[in-house]
Simulated scan of single mutants.
Amino acid sequence: MDRQDIRNYPPRQDSVPKARRHSAWLAVAWGRPELAADAALLTSELTTNALLHGSVWDRYFRVEVKLTGAVLRIEVTDPKGERHPEPRAAVTDYDQFGRGLHIVKALAETWGCTDRVIGKTVWAELAHGR
């Protein structure tokens, strides 16, 4: 059975843990508890990037979680389409930035970015059999 959930979040720091917890909860509720931890981490990384690089103070960002066949897909849509995500290296061991997309690449079967009329959607997919 295919499932889908869409939530909008304000561009605030407290939206990241809310979205993370909700994605993990959905994975469990939809019968895929083995994906909950990875779904939470992917959601956290993608929503943090949306907040840091794609947010506009008065525009919400959207988190969409889909279960289709053997794939759990997490999509985060933000209003800034001019900045596409690119993995970069952390400068030092203490650098707070530069690791998020490397985590996404390591966890996801595949990930990418889709342009929209306004903004962009960054997505990542987990397969059930991982």
Rank of each mutant, 00 (worst) to 15 (best):
M1A: 14
D2T: 15
D2A: 14
D2M: 12
R3T: 04
R3V: 05
Q4H: 14
Q4N: 08
Q4S: 15
I6V: 15
N8W: 09
Y9S: 07
Y9M: 12
Y9N: 06
Y9P: 02
P10S: 11
P11Q: 03
P11K: 04
R12G: 04
R12T: 12
S15T: 00
V16N: 09
P17F: 13
K18I: 09
K18T: 12
A19S: 01
A19I: 00
R20H: 03
R21C: 11
R21F: 10
H22S: 06
S23K: 04
S23R: 03
A24G: 15
A29M: 14
A29C: 10
W30M: 09
G31R: 10
R32S: 08
E34P: 02
E34T: 08
L35E: 03
D38C: 00
D38G: 00
A39T: 01
A39Y: 01
A39Q: 03
A40S: 03
L41Y: 04
L41K: 01
T43H: 01
T43A: 02
S44Y: 10
S44A: 10
L46F: 06
L46I: 01
T47D: 03
T47F: 01
N49S: 06
G54S: 14
G54N: 03
G54E: 07
W57Y: 14
D58G: 06
D58Q: 13
D58I: 06
R59F: 09
Y60N: 09
Y60K: 08
Y60T: 09
F61Q: 11
R62L: 08
R62Q: 15
V63D: 13
E64M: 07
V65D: 09
K66R: 15
K66S: 05
K66P: 03
A70M: 06
L72T: 14
L72F: 15
L72M: 15
L72D: 12
I74N: 13
I74M: 03
I74S: 12
E75K: 05
E75A: 05
T77H: 01
P79F: 09
P79W: 07
P79K: 09
P79G: 05
K80D: 12
G81V: 04
G81L: 01
H84Y: 05
H84W: 11
P85N: 01
P85A: 01
E86V: 14
E86A: 13
P87N: 04
R88Q: 08
A89C: 05
A89V: 05
V91L: 12
T92W: 12
T92C: 10
T92L: 05
D93F: 10
D95A: 15
Q96P: 15
R99D: 02
H102F: 03
I103T: 15
V104H: 00
V104N: 00
A106Y: 01
A106T: 10
L107E: 01
L107S: 05
A108Y: 06
E109W: 05
E109L: 11
W111D: 08
C113W: 03
T114H: 00
D115Q: 00
V117H: 15
I118E: 08
G119S: 00
G119M: 09
K120Y: 01
K120L: 00
T121L: 04
T121C: 14
V122A: 11
V122W: 06
A124F: 08
A124N: 00
A124S: 13
L126V: 02
H128M: 02
G129M: 12
G129F: 15
R130C: 04
R130N: 09
